[in-house]
């Protein structure tokens, strides 16, 4: 099973500079664990110490924000496109 994760510029330094990485499910949470195993330090940039998606990060699967699906338990299917997007915000 192959899933493509689009990596924002903020995190590219952790993954050798590439714009996307291939991973697999069966859930988005386990996909992040897989990425973490290959690129240590990745997960803590996306997930807070309580295991929730960080406040200023959004994770989309095929354009849907996983916060409004099953969060990190959202299942991944072959060919899914995952985007990790930091906030654009300020004052």
């Amino acid at each position: 099973m192959a899933v493509e994760v689009r990596v924002p510029s903020l995190l590219r330094g952790l993954v050798g500079g590439v714009k996307s990485i291939q991973t697999s499910g069966p859930t988005i949470g386990l996909a992040l664990d897989d990425i973490e195993a290959r690129f240590p330090g990745f997960k803590e940039r996306v997930i807070d110490p309580n295991g929730a998606i960080k406040q200023f990060v959004s994770i989309f699967i095929n354009g849907e924000d996983v916060r409004y699906i099953q969060s990190l338990d959202t299942p991944l299917l072959d060919g899914d496109q995952v985007s990790i997007l930091p906030a654009v915000a300020g004052g």
Binding site: R6, S58, F60, G63, D65, S83, L85, A87, V88, A89, G90, G91
Partner: peptide
């Protein structure tokens, strides 16, 4: 944020443009 002292772009809008 619709505010005089804060701004934020809806992540869905960022994704759409990306």
């Amino acid at each position: 944020s619709a505010s005089p002292i804060r701004y934020s772009i809806d992540p869905k809008e960022i994704l759409r443009i990306a």
